[in-house]
């Protein structure tokens, strides 16, 4: 079959060129709105309104300064980072431990736990906006530093558990049996054998949790009031209001909150792609 491609008949060369052109245009149409957003965010309002597609003549970094000021982006970046870190730590620990026991042990209630997680995975998460709001209202947990930790945990823990569980199933059982024979306790086995061996799966869930926690909007909009506790996705909402709509500031804000995840993506795209893909495979 390889020979077939390497035959450089005129027909196949043209086909090759055409196909590459199509592929490139597909990629460009995917990336152009983002590129456009980035360079437009450096224009003045007048420049943007008169010639929407042109590149900026001078890079107006003050748009960013203004956007950070207006949107209170420093505080909200800190807050979002806080939720990302707590959620990563919490979900990773829980998912690895429960993933391990679900994969390796039979115990009473295992099915119950498994199916609870499965239902949790299938429930559309934003059907929970009102319920979580009600629960927190009754508990007086609205508008505190820890309010968002619970729904964010709920959003991530099910899939992460399943990902780790199926990965651990692939690790030879003999390894932890050997550890047990050598006298390791379960905790030690988890820490010394399972954690290191499942690092690819853990890396994947860590990055997925980070992305999705950073991006979350609904719960943050409903459960948080104080500016000092607000997350980035809510902060950027405030740009499409007010007496005069400043598109360039808004675009600067959109770029600012997207830069961290785009960077994360460029560095870890392998894990992200495999992770998000397995979201589907898992079903």
């Amino acid at each position: 079959m390889n020979n077939k491609i390497k035959q450089n008949t005129p027909g196949s060369i043209i086909a090759k060129i055409v196909m590459n052109i199509i592929a490139i245009s597909i990629s460009i149409s995917c990336i152009y709105p983002i590129i456009w957003l980035i360079y437009s965010s450096f224009k003045t309002k007048g420049e943007f309104m008169t010639n929407t597609l042109a590149l900026p003549t001078i890079l107006h970094f003050e748009n960013y300064a203004r956007a950070f000021h207006l949107g209170n982006l420093v505080t909200s970046t800190f807050n979002s980072t806080f939720y990302v870190i707590t959620n990563v730590v919490l979900v990773t620990i829980v998912a690895t431990i429960s993933g391990y026991f679900l994969a390796r042990y039979d115990f009473k209630g295992k099915k119950f736990i498994y199916y609870s997680y499965l239902i949790g995975f299938l429930v559309p998460i934003y059907a929970l906006l009102v319920p979580v709001f009600l629960q927190f209202r009754l508990l007086g947990l609205i508008n505190t530093r820890i309010s968002l930790i619970f729904p964010y945990f709920a959003m991530q823990v099910t899939l992460s558990t399943f990902l780790v569980e199926s990965f651990i199933r692939g690790i030879p059982r003999s390894l932890d049996e050997a550890a047990a024979i050598e006298g390791c306790s379960v905790g030690q086995t988890l820490l010394k054998i399972i954690f290191p061996l499942s690092s690819p799966a853990i890396a994947t869930i860590v990055i997925l949790i980070s992305l999705q926690t950073w991006n979350e909007f609904g719960f943050s909009a409903v459960l948080i009031r104080d500016v000092s506790l607000r997350t980035v996705s809510v902060a950027i909402q405030s740009f499409r209001a007010g007496l005069q709509l400043e598109y360039t500031y808004m675009m600067a804000a959109l770029v600012s909150v997207s830069i961290p995840i785009i960077t994360l993506y460029l560095v870890f795209s392998k894990y992200i792609i495999s992770g998000i893909t397995s979201t589907g495979i898992k079903e």
Partner: peptide, 17 residues
């Protein structure tokens, strides 16, 4: 800003917060 406020204030009212 008003657009955010029109969502947030009723939600806080519902929360008695």
């Amino acid at each position: 800003p008003s657009q955010a406020y029109l969502v947030q204030a009723p939600a806080l009212g519902a929360a008695n917060e």
